[in-house]
Nucleic acid binder design. Structure first.
Lengths: 232, 232
DNA sequence: ACAATGACAAGAGCAGTGCTCTTGTTTGTT
DNA sequence: AACAAACAAGAGCACTGCTCTTGTCATTGT
């Protein structure tokens, strides 16, 4: 993370690192994470496979870099569509985030599988990935915070949240400032799970193809969740 | 699927097939699906790797068999806990199903990843898997049907379901008899997505470890969904 | 009872993988 | 100019899924 001197060698290294990532990203989008091969990347760049290991110490490290990029790409996409909505239009912002997630996932199924599918076996997501992974969660929580600040309250649901659950929520409440009320947080986390559950079930082929019109149904669910959250 | 003659050869084949599946299942639970190796299975059974291919034409076929077994295992586990609840206790049945899914997933994380995680790359789930995959969905829909028959109605949510959404729901309504009302189906599908979304986010490490007490929070969410469904 | 047929196990082998080690070259620093 | 670090390339190891060939056994038809 140091500024890296602008020597010929340093710029060459930076360029090659990017080239490796780009080639890997292309392969990832084409054939999926498990079939990603450092030898194939090396072939694509017309270099020796052993040379790639000078830039990424292992295949997993390369995969990790791709995961970080995917999270960032998703985060940027969601933030972009959400930013385009008038601040006061809480329902619109919620809709933008929800559909933004699904649209991105459908456009980048392999990346979505990498970030939100089963973790690559024998591979534990390193710390580098958690910060970029937070971006869309933060966008969602921010909308909830604004809703709370605007005096909205979750429409339905158990009136009061048990003390145990309040404790269970813990630091989640303080992810935004001012902190979320437990009731809002519970509904918010539920909506979050519903969103990703829906996208996962759709993308991973669990909603029997042809039996359901995803576009329509997802829109219905999103609006329902929005209503549950008291956004409109 | 033919009754298979009871010759010495046939029984030997059946036994070896089972032995292969058992060894593969053990490996799967240990090291995950991607690391599952037919050569390792062959080593475990002290046979030539090429001999395994006489029983399963490819590694994917072996994986498919394991997926079917996993779905059946999950289905059986959920049905077992649900059956233990008094029929009239709709909320209890719902809770049993929900917690049954999560408990099974936590006890068999690799199997869960196989069934509900990202599909193994370059691998499309064949038709054999869809029937066993339906078991838990059917259990959930049956509870909803019974709730509907008992006069319950979804607590919250948009009063009426749009015509487009009714059409989108399509055959899902008729999965049980008598068919589900659209309002119930929407809520039910949403709850279904929330359930699996929650379990996936928890198991795949997206809910920041330590920040949330899963046991308590999941119970809260389940009860909230139950209330949304009008089950108590 | 015998011979033909099919199922089977085993081994060698191919093409591919991640990764390491060694060798020789280029670049940047003192 | 001298030295050290960074680099590319190649060979090689151990592994993978899978195929093909060879030889053996059980089952079946005559």
């Amino acid at each position: 993370m140091s500024p890296a001197p602008r020597t010929a060698r340093a710029t060459a290294r930076a360029e090659l690192t990017r080239a490796i990532l780009d080639s890997a990203a292309t392969q990832l989008a084409d054939i999926g994470p498990a079939a990603l091969s450092v030898r194939a990347v090396a072939r694509d760049l017309e270099m020796a496979s052993s040379a790639v290991y000078r830039y990424f110490p292992s295949r997993d490290a390369l995969l990790t870099a791709l995961i970080v990029e995917a999270y960032d790409d998703l985060g940027a996409a969601v933030e972009a569509v959400e930013r385009a909505v008038r601040r006061g239009d809480l329902r619109g912002r919620w809709r933008a985030i929800a559909h933004g997630i699904r649209d991105w996932a459908r456009a980048h199924p392999h990346q979505y599988a990498l970030t939100h599918g089963s973790p690559v076996p024998g591979y534990a997501a390193p710390a580098d990935t958690v910060v970029p992974a937070t971006r869309v969660t933060l966008a969602l929580l921010t909308v909830l915070r604004d809703a709370q600040a605007a005096g909205r309250t979750p429409a339905a649901g158990p009136a009061r949240v048990s003390a145990a659950e309040k404790a269970a929520l813990g630091p989640v409440l303080a992810f935004v400032d001012p902190p979320l009320s437990p009731a809002f947080a519970v509904r918010g986390l539920t909506a979050w799970a519903t969103l990703f559950g829906h996208v996962s079930l759709e993308l991973f082929g669990h909603m029997h193809r042809g039996v359901l019109d995803y576009d329509t149904h997802f829109a219905t669910v999103v609006d329902q969740l929005g209503a549950d959250l008291g956004l409109g």
